[in-house]
């Protein structure tokens, strides 16, 4: 557990966890600018709540969970609801600078959000299914099913180019 003395904990948290939070938010929102907004909002919640953590891993998981929920809230926001969102359109909204030929990232971004975040947490953060279930507050079986379906769709998209 951390004692909240001075502001060192802020620098430590930003240094240690902002990359993971940015990538998680980006995997949901597909926009670096929106991801940055969401991560700052998640950190502000962290400052306001000052939760107690058992360990660094617990703190990281909490911050990723808040980031994911904040990103989902942003997706659901009325501003975005008014947009004619569908996966094909979103695909074209991916930051052009991030696109490369045969990009694995493009394929992941083409997945539905519910598969995308699980694929991200599993392959990028290397969380176990149980840990993902805890972070997303979903039943373990649901996480397993979504991971399996997400991988199946990815395999089709990647035409067997990579082992999943």
């Amino acid at each position: 557990m951390y004692s909240f003395t001075g502001n060192e904990y802020i620098e430590k948290a930003v240094e240690n966890y902002s990359d993971a939070m940015l990538n998680a938010a980006y995997s949901i929102l597909k926009s670096t600018a929106d991801a940055e907004d969401v991560v700052q909002e998640a950190f502000l919640k962290y400052i306001r709540k000052r939760p107690v953590f058992n360990s660094d891993e617990h703190e990281k998981a909490w911050l990723i969970r808040v980031t994911i929920n904040t990103a989902k809230d942003m997706l659901k926001s009325s501003e975005r609801k008014n947009l004619p969102i569908c996966e094909d359109i979103l695909y074209n909204q991916i930051d052009e600078s991030q696109k490369t030929a045969n990009s694995v990232l493009e394929c992941v971004f083409n997945l539905e959000e519910k598969y995308r975040i699980i694929i991200h947490l599993y392959y990028y953060e290397e969380y176990s299914l149980k840990e993902i279930a805890s972070i997303l507050q979903l039943p373990l079986a649901t996480v397993g099913t979504r991971l399996s379906r997400g991988r199946k769709i990815l395999k089709t998209m990647l035409k067997g180019e990579f082992d999943l």
Partner: peptide, 18 residues
Amino acid sequence: MTFKEKYKEELSDTRFSE
């Protein structure tokens, strides 16, 4: 290269504000 390695590589190339 595995999917995981490729995904990590591509996502790590994402450029956020300096």
